[in-house]
Nucleic acid binder design. Structure first.
Lengths: 326, 326
DNA sequence: CAAATATGTGAAAACGTTTACAAAATTATT
DNA sequence: AATAATTTTGTAAACGTTTTCACATATTTG
């Protein structure tokens, strides 16, 4: 940069201004500086800029896991709009472990990030206090059933579960099963499960049993379906907190000669690409996958633009996608 | 940090040394500094450290897309071992666009990263020159069919295609189809396709036709299967460059009353979690998913440990997983 | 036991920006 | 035309570390 300043015959401050607030430099100097910059192939050092400035152009994004279509889509959307805008994404995952989340937040906070994006509304005390004392936008995404720290962008998982239950009970199903994942403490899956059960129990004559899969995969769905059949043979409808589980349930039902949807209705959650293409096509609840990342990114950009804009709560909703399985 | 130095009655340099090379500080001073650090809750500012030191504790990871089970697994493994070791991951994606890759590499290089991890061996001229002039380890992963810049960790996609073809021809199949993705220019998918065709054509009496799917999803597989049936009804075996495509092919075949594997053998690539659970279970080629990220991360850690260790080429191989579909 | 070597510590100069403040140049006002 | 207000520019002080160099102390060696 000093070289640019020298060759352009201006001070360091002017070069800096040409980069960060071109409007505040006269056209003549600006174009001269730009020309020299261009010629020398100068590009500013983000580390030095971060040390000196109020924030780094780093945005921390923390998700429970990256091997999940939801979050990887979100990461991609975020990156897709934030990277071209000159921000770099630091990403980390914690596998639903609040302590790991805390460690990552602490590490990210030390970079004086331009923003921090976390998943959901459940955090440890320390995490909450770190997040609130950060002087940058903080977005909690993918959930909306909670008190916002700053900005909340997502939908209600509880309501999603309710809607799934309502769909089944309206169709006359009375022996319901809700399949959740066992060892994983996923607050959003839990909220869907809670919503499902509370709605189901609100209609007379309905029984709901909860089953737990070892994990969220298709194979876990087939496994849990086998135990459902033996433990609760009267079952006439299954809701799974994730589509892969639901596919597993369908596959296993077919193997056992149980007709879907005639003998058994199956509803999933997620609406993955494959969900529309299994037979019977999966009826599921579709969260705003793609919108979440994009909305978060645009929210951030607009906050950067106007630093004293307020945080907000954005409910992106969800959609019940009715196909063949229920 | 200056506060710590003051309270501990030592110089800044000593505090810095306690953090970065505790061995070079006497036990007495070290423990005093550690005690004061602890008490004040001091944690070093990584930005300042990066500006001053040779490298930042940032590791850039660039993948073609994050919404792909392969790469998201890799990202997760990388993050899982590198984050606890005190490094932060900057991640970006380029959708198989060399210009976007170049832009991201340029942006990451400016952070003086501790290492850079990119996907595959195909890069633009500028990217190659930036990567080679970087004074940090550079790892190219997920492919091994090319000349390494520094370190190469992966397997041969070409060979994977060959093995798939050999499996089919050995089973007596002669009317082969290779399904690739059309608009996406994925060099690794291309290599698998090339390997498949070259092997297939090496056995007498075999014909191979190439078909292109619009994308890599299950739905794209069903769509391409429909055109295969009309354009090449004699087909008795299909290889797809990805498992979701292969599942689509199977689903569509079943819908059309084509028996798999009796009438049609189907081989995929990837061995996703679901692949084992569709009926018939998918025969596929399993790349070293999980090992790649872990191997890359451990390679990096050992390079950081011993900075004048050389780059290397690690072939992690792949496995033909024979199930029911072929 | 002196000289040579190794080890531990501190002073101060980077690292490359941003930004408060002051000074200069320009424009508007009377 | 002189003054006031505004805009543009430059100077210099941060930002919080790491690292080089020199110095003092402790250890080894002949």
């Amino acid at each position: 940069m000093s070289e640019v300043a020298q060759l352009a015959g201006v001070s360091l401050a002017t070069v800096s201004r040409v980069i960060n607030s071109p409007g505040s430099v006269s056209a003549s100097l600006r174009s001269k500086v730009e020309e020299v910059s261009e010629r020398l192939g100068y590009s500013p050092n983000p580390i030095a800029g971060s040390l000196s400035g109020a924030h780094s152009p780093l945005i921390g994004v923390i998700v429970p896991t990256m091997t999940n279509a939801f979050f990887s889509t979100t990461l991609e959307s975020l990156s897709g709009v934030l990277e071209p805008a000159g921000y770099q994404l630091m990403v980390g995952f914690h596998e639903y472990d609040e302590d790991r989340e805390e460690a990552i937040v602490a590490a990210y906070a030390a970079w004086r990030p331009a923003a921090l994006v976390v998943t959901g509304v459940n955090h440890s005390r320390n995490t909450v206090s770190m997040l609130s004392s950060l002087d940058c936008p903080v977005v909690e995404m993918w959930d909306i059933d909670g008190r916002p720290l700053d900005t909340l962008i997502g939908y209600s998982n509880f309501d999603a579960g309710k809607v799934a239950a309502a769909h089944l009970t309206k169709a006359g199903r009375r022996n319901l099963v809700c399949v959740n994942v066992g060892p994983i403490r996923d607050p959003r899956a839990q909220a869907r499960s809670d919503g499902f059960c509370s709605e189901a129990l609100s209609v007379a004559g309905t029984t709901v049993k909860k089953f737990y899969a070892a994990n969220r995969g298709v194979g876990d769905g087939t496994a849990v379906m086998r135990t459902i059949i033996t433990d609760f043979p009267e079952v006439d409808a299954v809701f799974c907190i994730g589509d892969p589980l639901a596919m597993g349930v369908i596959f296993e039902a077919q193997r056992q000669g149980i007709g879907v949807p005639d003998d058994l209705a199956v509803v999933g959650f997620g609406d993955l690409e494959a969900s529309a293409h299994v037979t019977p096509a999966l009826t599921t609840v579709r969260p705003p996958h793609d919108q979440i990342g994009k909305t978060v990114a645009e929210h951030l950009l607009s906050r950067f633009d106007d630093p004293d804009r307020e945080g907000e709560v954005v409910n992106l909703g969800f959609r019940m996608v009715i196909r063949e399985s229920a």
